[in-house]
Amino acid sequence: MFDELSARFEDAVKGLRGENKISEDNVDIALKQVRRALLEADVSLSVVKQFVQEVRDKAIGAEVVRGVNPGQKFIEVVHQELVEVMGGANSPLADSTKKPSVILMAGLQGAGKTTAAAKLGLYLKDKGLKPLMVAADVYRPAAIDQLNTLGKQINVEVFSLGKESKPEDIAASGLKKAQEEDFDTLIVDTAGRLQIDEEMMNEMVRIRSAVDPDEVLLVVDSMIGQEAADLTRAFHEKVGITGAVLTKLDGDSRGGAALSIRKVSGQPIKFIGTGEKVEALQPFHPERMAGRILGMGDVLTLVEKA
């Protein structure tokens, strides 16, 4: 699959070969390939359109220096723009002045929230902090057991009130406990919900009010398709996200959602999930993600070939 995509870009730059500059006349064929590649990588269509327009504007104006052909320049512009849109450098977790700081997990069903909560728990613990995880999913069968099991694995305490209490009350009680017992960070796991489920989205808002989080992390499955844009928009408008975790990147999905999430919300992807195990959490690197979305491990080789 990756080869096919590299080939697509080779086609794209072939159109520019022999030309001495990127112009209105020759850029469109190349852009068509970019559009196609992004759609195949599951970047949301509205985001693809904006992105292609921006690349077009930048590419046409781009100065082609001696020794670099327009094809090489074009790929460079696409790649740079991707990296830039995705936030340039990695963004760490928010520095909080209050103690405990609060992280709220949110997202669709099965995205990887509970797993990511435990991964963050371990990550913070390894930094010498004392996190508390809160089981505020009262719907999914055995959701509390799942968080408890993971808590034991990483040696991080889990607070729960069973599944008869309201999630916002569980979250509030968890916060109280954390304040009283000197925890550094509160990680609130919540039930999966569809962004079109008004009742569940309202519940999310109530949970948010109950704990006043420093971070609201939208957890998104990297295999997600066109939904990424609508999903992000809805969660951001309603709950206000501060960042995202992109999961299941240990597979072969191209992860175009990374671009959609950032473009729609303006918020950075902070971490990526690269496995089922609690250790499989990594900081997000826009540069690497750009290569992945374009289907080329190493952009430079492609630039050299162009």
């Binding site: 699959m1 099965g110 072969d252 191209r254 175009g256």
Partner: peptide, 11 residues
């Protein structure tokens, strides 16, 4: 197959 998934579903 999850309906929210994109092109990876084919793979």
């Amino acid at each position: 197959l999850d309906a929210t998934q994109g092109q990876n579903g084919l793979s």
